Amino acid sequence: MDTGHVGVWHPLLSKAPVQQVRRAAAEIEELGYGALWGNEAPGSKEPFVNAALLLAATERAAVGIGIASIWGRDATATAAAWATLAEAFPGRFLLGLGVSHSPLVSGRGHTYIKPLAAMRAYLDGIDAAKPEVPQGDAPRLLAALKPKMLELSRDRAEGAHTYFVPPEHTALARQILGPDRLLVPEQAVVVETDPARAREIARTYMSYYLVLPNYLNNLRDLGFTDDDFADGGSDRLVDAIVAWGDAEAVAGRVRDHLAAGADHVAIQPLSPLPDLDDALAQLKTLAPALGL
């Protein structure tokens, strides 16, 4: 599978009206980005159906789910959906699976306990269903931050999809995954050179994640403290999580992830308001600096 080194992760690829998403997907592909990443979150479209829409709207780009919650459907249903998309779009679909977060899981009526064991059991269920997916044709990735989930990504999947992480985490993840597993970090970006404005946009985005224990615990392991999490995030934390500045500065952060061991970086252009047009404008600006 050829995803290129840079793709696009954006929640509106899973939420915006279908016709708008189709147009945006085709334009992102035309700009040279190698993959499009949708997600599963409150208010989003069903992730496998949405992946099919994105795949049908494009010709070459890979499409990944980052991620489908294991609490959203049983393992047999996931295996069937995975096999269906792998057959319909050979070499273009990436299955991302994750344990999600306690507030989101409880909102679906489930109990969030022993997430690592839950993921192992879910993978057992997928494998028991024997989905007909050719080796390497539709890679299975796990959402992973901490060492044990990264080890599971190495041992039971083709790699890991990481989120809300700086390049320092990418280097640690690569050490655990080894050289032959895919590593796909997400990187939030803002093409904005004014520090106050860029950090304001970044903090609005980060506020959702700075109340989720999985992300906070991972950031603590990287040396951040509760002081960094207060008041929307310290400048140090904001600058570590969100790449901002001119196009070359943002591209530099992508290169940092690649140098740290990423195979593909999924950038997420942030806007003051949810707006695919603004995201596309930033992607156009960034494409030459990214070498696309």
Rank of each mutant, 00 (worst) to 15 (best):
3 T>R: 14
4 G>Q: 13
4 G>M: 13
4 G>R: 11
13 L>G: 10
14 S>I: 03
18 V>R: 15
20 Q>N: 04
24 A>L: 05
26 A>F: 07
30 E>Q: 15
34 G>V: 11
34 G>R: 09
36 L>G: 06
36 L>E: 05
42 P>R: 12
44 S>Q: 09
52 A>P: 09
52 A>K: 07
56 A>I: 02
59 E>D: 14
70 I>Q: 02
70 I>N: 03
74 D>K: 05
80 A>L: 07
80 A>Q: 14
85 L>H: 05
87 E>H: 12
94 L>D: 02
95 L>S: 08
99 V>G: 03
100 S>W: 12
103 P>Q: 12
104 L>D: 12
106 S>M: 09
110 H>T: 01
114 K>R: 15
115 P>L: 07
116 L>G: 01
117 A>P: 00
118 A>P: 02
120 R>Q: 15
121 A>R: 15
123 L>C: 09
128 A>W: 01
134 P>Q: 10
137 D>K: 09
138 A>F: 07
138 A>E: 10
138 A>R: 06
143 A>G: 15
144 A>P: 06
152 L>R: 11
162 T>L: 12
163 Y>L: 13
175 Q>C: 00
175 Q>S: 13
176 I>F: 01
177 L>D: 08
179 P>A: 15
182 L>N: 01
184 V>W: 11
185 P>V: 06
186 E>Y: 07
186 E>V: 14
189 V>P: 03
190 V>W: 01
192 E>G: 05
199 R>T: 08
199 R>G: 04
200 E>N: 09
205 Y>K: 06
208 Y>L: 12
217 N>W: 09
223 G>I: 08
230 A>T: 07
231 D>A: 15
232 G>P: 04
237 L>Y: 05
239 D>H: 02
243 A>N: 05
246 D>P: 03
247 A>Q: 02
255 R>K: 14
256 D>E: 15
257 H>F: 02
257 H>I: 02
259 A>G: 14
261 G>Q: 10
263 D>S: 12
264 H>E: 00
282 Q>W: 00
283 L>Y: 03
292 L>E: 00
292 L>M: 13
